[in-house]
Design a protein around this nucleic acid. Structure first.
Length: 177
DNA sequence: CCCTGATTCGC
DNA sequence: GCGAATCAGG
């Protein structure tokens, strides 16, 4: 899909802002698009704005070297208690206009069209991305697992939330359906 | 089960 | 530098 997206200044800026606003890595990743939460966390650490945090060098943490050696010292740093209230996020681009009258054209996107539910089966934690013509009985919602806190799944969140910078010219409404 | 960030290490 | 895999924990 989107090619050449990487840690451009714009993306790093957005990352910084969202991280400092207390957004979680997964939400940030969804809004940036094209990256996973792991990528976000990795970047955050590389940028040196890792977090505020837990106790400390708890002897046990993520994968450590096979073994061998164990030093490192750290003093309990002040912890910033209370995360700020998540603020409004970037540009929310409501679904582009509805697709041509049920354009029966072939799908060029190999998207797993598995879920898809009616409003009756739509429940919290399900992607609310509209699919089809809402005036017809065939209307459905994506229904895939939505990012908690956001109304869409990772795929549709990328379409809904587009970094202002990249949305400039090359904005092609990818995948609708 | 859902989620969170932290760390290591192969690329 | 990057981020998947993995870990510890809520």
């Amino acid at each position: 899909m989107e090619a050449g997206l990487s840690w451009t200044d714009e993306r790093v800026d957005l990352l910084r802002r969202l991280w400092e606003d207390g957004q979680s890595a997964s939400k940030i990743a969804a809004q940036l698009g094209g990256v996973t939460r792991n990528a976000v966390i990795g970047k955050v650490h590389r940028l040196g704005l890792a977090g505020r945090v837990k106790a400390v060098p708890a002897p046990v943490n993520g994968r450590r070297k096979p073994e061998r050696e164990a030093e490192a010292e750290a003093s309990p740093i002040e912890v910033m208690e209370e995360a700020p209230e998540p603020i409004a996020i970037t540009a929310h681009r409501p679904a582009p206009d509805f697709p041509p009258p049920a354009a029966p054209t072939a799908d060029s996107v190999p998207l797993a069209v598995s879920e898809r539910v009616t409003i009756m089966d739509l429940r919290e934690s399900m992607c609310r991305w509209p699919m089809g013509d809402p005036t017809t009985p065939e209307f459905r919602f994506c229904g895939a697992r939505s990012i908690t806190g956001l109304p869409y799944c990772t795929h549709h969140a990328q379409i809904a939330y587009q970094p202002a910078a990249e949305r400039k010219r090359d904005r092609r409404v990818a995948g609708f359906r």
